[in-house]
């Protein structure tokens, strides 16, 4: 039987300001740092930034695509938000399998999101059960 994939690669997501507004409406997070360009211009970021949970959703989508219901039933994520994502950025997710004994009940990946300049914007780990719980 084939083991778990050693590497994961998610789709590229081009972040737009329209998407930040859509996400704010969908999640209820209307922090002006994400949706008000004039406000954001007066912050250290200089312009709006994406919600951390939006970028994290790109990572989770990659895990859903690769592991399906196993991810949605017992998956665990632990991440740090390392750099802001701005409208216009292209974000890509990936993952690398840690050592996984054949009899392990769960597998763990080092996961990350990167922008178009190769800057790591999220890093962390994702753990997936080997079988549906």
């Amino acid at each position: 039987m084939a083991g778990p994939p050693k590497t994961l690669a998610g789709a590229a997501h081009q972040v737009t300001q329209e998407q930040l507004v859509q996400y704010a409406d969908a999640s209820g997070d209307h922090n002006p740092l994400h949706v008000d360009a004039a406000f954001a211009a007066g912050t250290p970021y200089g312009r709006t930034i994406a919600h951390g949970m939006l970028v994290l959703a790109f990572l989770s989508a990659m895990l859903t695509h690769n592991f399906g219901m196993r991810w949605l039933t017992g998956g665990r994520l632990r991440v740090r938000f390392r750099a802001p994502v701005h409208p216009g950025d292209a974000v890509r997710s990936d993952g690398r399998l840690r050592a996984a004994p054949a009899d392990a009940q769960e597998i763990t990946y080092d996961v990350a999101c990167w922008n178009q300049d190769g800057v790591q914007v999220i890093s962390g780990e994702a753990t997936i059960p080997q079988a549906l719980l």
């Binding site: 919600h51 949970m53 994290l56 039933t73 017992g74 665990r76 632990r78 938000f81």
Partner: peptide, 8 residues
Amino acid sequence: HTGQELTF
């Protein structure tokens, strides 16, 4: 928002 942990 500096970090996030989630368990589904």
